[in-house]
Design a protein around this nucleic acid. Structure first.
Lengths: 199, 199
DNA sequence: TGCAATAATTCAGGACGTGCAAGAAGTCGT
DNA sequence: ACGACTTCTTGCACGTCCTGAATTATTGCA
């Protein structure tokens, strides 16, 4: 199957049309002045269809569908790899997650730009990422084995999400060029400096 | 002025009435089935009045008004105190912040209980806390002085919020008894173990 | 082509949240 | 206690988001 079917292609095209139309209108007149109705008029479909694609207006701005962890990376982490050092492996897992922006870099960049002026969007993104929380929790639990202390699991899960977030912010304040995951090491370095000041 | 005026007392009473009614109804029939209209019927005021007290329905669940940092603790942190060690002082600041729940412990506990089944609430709380973000940023910047690297400021600010959040979760998983801030040391200890595994 | 699955549309409606202007209730000076 | 002043409450109209159910169009496949 080289072609993935007309149905799937149309679906994806329409999804991108929604996202692009939203971004275009938001750039023109500001996000709060953009109604779902206007977006749909731009795309040429009914409002109800919009909500078949997205759960909320915000999701259209973010271009959110499903953000999954990379299978291989997740499995490696759960089984104690790839290096065996918890911190290093957390970095590896985070890197792999940041490596797959669902709809391309330019769209993600525009979405993030809009999100800076609209905190609700950042939060909406968080709920999506939070969807990964259970999955992450399961991974951490497998990795820690029987010694799994629930509060430690929760902490590590939160920390993983926090690492991703901080890395994202740092990438953005650095100008938003290059790969997001390149900024992870410096985040970890700063945190290490805080928690282990004696070199 | 011993009495703070009838106006202020009535306002506070009504605010608590809103929160309590919301909690009671939510416990009975589930939060999503509770409409603002129902809450107002319970309290005996108009819907419009509800929105004079809260910006959103979620805020009524959380009983949110303004959550301010303690003046003295903030000042101490900004000027390099109280101990001089960044990590210890972050703990002190976080502790003082967790020490002042606006509407009493029982209400906070019920709100948190509800929030566990409704992630949006946790996020809404986050926006409120986020209001502290700028304030915290300013503190961190003052403390770091001219050497203030913006990305470090952002990281430390996020970390402070993260500490508070993790502490809160840990307090809850421990049964939700006692003082929230008592769990902060163990959070810090776990993080230290992760970032500085060689003792 | 013709049948089954899937997606889009129409329609009706609930719920949240806001602006506005009129009226009620608290506050204060005298 | 009275009237002027401020603040709060209320009703109403409206816009927007989002959902469910039933209907119609489109696509996949034999």
């Amino acid at each position: 199957m080289e072609t993935e079917g007309l149905r799937a292609r149309k679906k994806r095209a329409r999804l991108e049309a929604f996202v692009d139309a939203t971004h275009r209108l938001a750039a023109e007149q500001g996000l709060d002045r953009v109604t779902v109705e206007a977006i749909c008029a731009e795309v040429g479909v009914s409002v109800r269809t919009f909500f078949n694609y997205f759960e909320s207006k915000d999701d259209a701005v973010l271009g959110m569908e499903h953000w999954r962890l990379d299978e291989a990376a997740a499995e490696a982490f759960a089984t104690g790899g790839p290096t065996g050092d918890l911190l290093a492996d957390m970095q590896a897992l985070t890197t792999s997650a940041l490596d797959h922006p669902p709809l391309g870099k330019e769209r993600m960049e525009r979405a993030f730009e809009l999100a800076k002026g609209h905190p609700e969007l950042m939060l909406r993104a968080y709920t999506h990422v939070q969807g990964l929380h259970d999955e992450i929790g399961a991974l951490v639990r497998r990795r820690l084995g029987t010694a799994a202390d629930e509060s430690a699991v929760a902490l590590i899960g939160t920390l993983l999400l926090g690492l991703a977030h901080a890395t994202f912010v740092r990438w953005d304040t650095a100008g938003g060029t290059g790969d997001v995951q390149d900024h992870l090491p410096s985040v970890v370095a700063d945190l290490t400096a805080i928690f282990a000041p004696r070199t």
